[in-house]
Design a protein around this nucleic acid. Structure first.
Lengths: 228, 228
DNA sequence: CTATTATGAAAGTATTACTATTATTTTTGA
DNA sequence: TCAAAAATAATAGTAATACTTTCATAATAG
């Protein structure tokens, strides 16, 4: 098992890069420090020139890996969803009860991220901040449909499908499994953002977190005896 | 009543503009065509120079109304939420039953927007598209906290508070009225986006819309006898 | 009818988001 | 181990962006 994990590589669509950043030292440095820099200064202020300075490399070298910073964002976003999918599948592997399974899935999606030592060059906490604060910019563009055709959002959609399946497994009568799945996934990100910036519209104190809200929601919303 | 409506003006915080765009013909043209242009080319490609060309005015004149395009986006977003609040308060005015009231509120928030003839210079349908596709960019920045202090998101937060109140009115025991309110408001926008671009993760056909999803959710989630 | 205010035109600046060219270093495989 | 190929670095260049500044002209208000 340990061995299996050692060889783990999150596979991201080839359409997203010019040269696979996982294939070289420079590539991994681009990913590592690109994530840290976006987390630090925000996606708007982030440029390949600044990243070049940060890693003592050249702007033009970074352009050989990624066409532009937008595709870099799409790449790391895909990596994140791929990583989440691994965590999800792994954590529900031995669970048979549909209810327990969905609750576990919500935990994986909604709980604050902790570092994953298996990927040394990726700071998952910084990446999670980027997902909360920047990732919607990867699809909120005039080119969504075109990019969608090229598979830029596949991993996100696959995760939505998996969770919607778990919802249907628990309550096969429920009519909106997809809407509920996206609500859980994207709503979690949004709730994290709100609890960090708009305290006046949050419920109670530190004890309450997005995971609790969504677990309570699912348990009360779904008819948990239907699935069996 | 008609008279009252004729004089209606959505009031947006003075912090958002240098000169009130509602105070002059040019100002209203900036708003009118700014909305149309952002809807057409997207916020990233939108510039005051292009808007100047569009309205046969000068870039520098537009800068006398708004400091930059970001604040322009914040302005029209606030206008939108102010307008929604009016619609909301108006449509629930005569409703006493908490359940009926909340369902009506969800309709107002989640149903596709139709033109409001009272505001001749504002295309609410185009504006609604902007809210769906661009408005999150107004708060997903490194300056959120600073801007929040200056009241840039007041109207949005006020709307969340109103809806959370309606939720508590219906079920005073429910522990997450704020989270549920933001889930309804922002989730509606997100569901609209998904149904426009990511069809493979939507439920069923045309018959299903965000309004139905959230009404079903609320009715099954809340204990509707508690509120009385 | 003049003083103020609003708008327009033009030019200037630093930064961004790249592309292109050439030079240098590193890797590799014969 | 050495030459060829591949990767990276350095430099310069371009069009567009996001403004600011200055000055000219038009509208309007007292």
């Amino acid at each position: 098992m340990e061995e299996l994990l050692k060889n783990l590589k999150i596979s991201v669509s080839e359409n997203l890069y010019l040269k696979d950043p996982e294939s070289s030292e420079l590539g991994r440095r681009i990913i590592e420090h690109g994530i840290l820099l976006i987390d630090k200064i925000g996606f708007e202020k982030f440029t390949f020139k600044k990243l070049g300075l940060e890693i003592q490399s050249n702007e033009s070298s970074i352009y050989r890996y990624f066409e532009n910073k937008h595709l870099f964002l799409v790449y790391i976003t895909n990596w994140f969803w791929g990583w989440k999918e691994y965590q999800l599948m792994f954590s529900i592997y031995s669970i048979n009860d549909p209810e327990e399974k969905l609750l576990k899935a919500i935990d994986v999606m909604a709980h604050p991220v902790i570092q994953d030592i298996r990927f040394k060059h990726i700071d998952e906490v910084a990446l999670n901040n980027i997902i909360i604060n920047e990732s919607s910019k990867s699809y909120l563009t005039k080119k969504v449909d075109e990019e969608n055709k090229h598979g830029h959002f596949l991993l996100y959609k696959r995760l939505v499908k998996r969770i919607s399946q778990m919802i249907s497994e628990l309550d096969c009568e429920y009519k909106y499994p997809f809407s509920l799945a996206t609500t859980i996934i994207d709503g979690s990100l949004h709730q994290h953002f709100i609890s960090q910036h708009f305290l006046s519209i949050t419920d109670g104190g530190d004890k309450i977190n997005p995971s609790m809200f969504f677990k309570n929601l699912v348990l009360n919303l779904l008819n948990t005896n239907n699935g069996k």
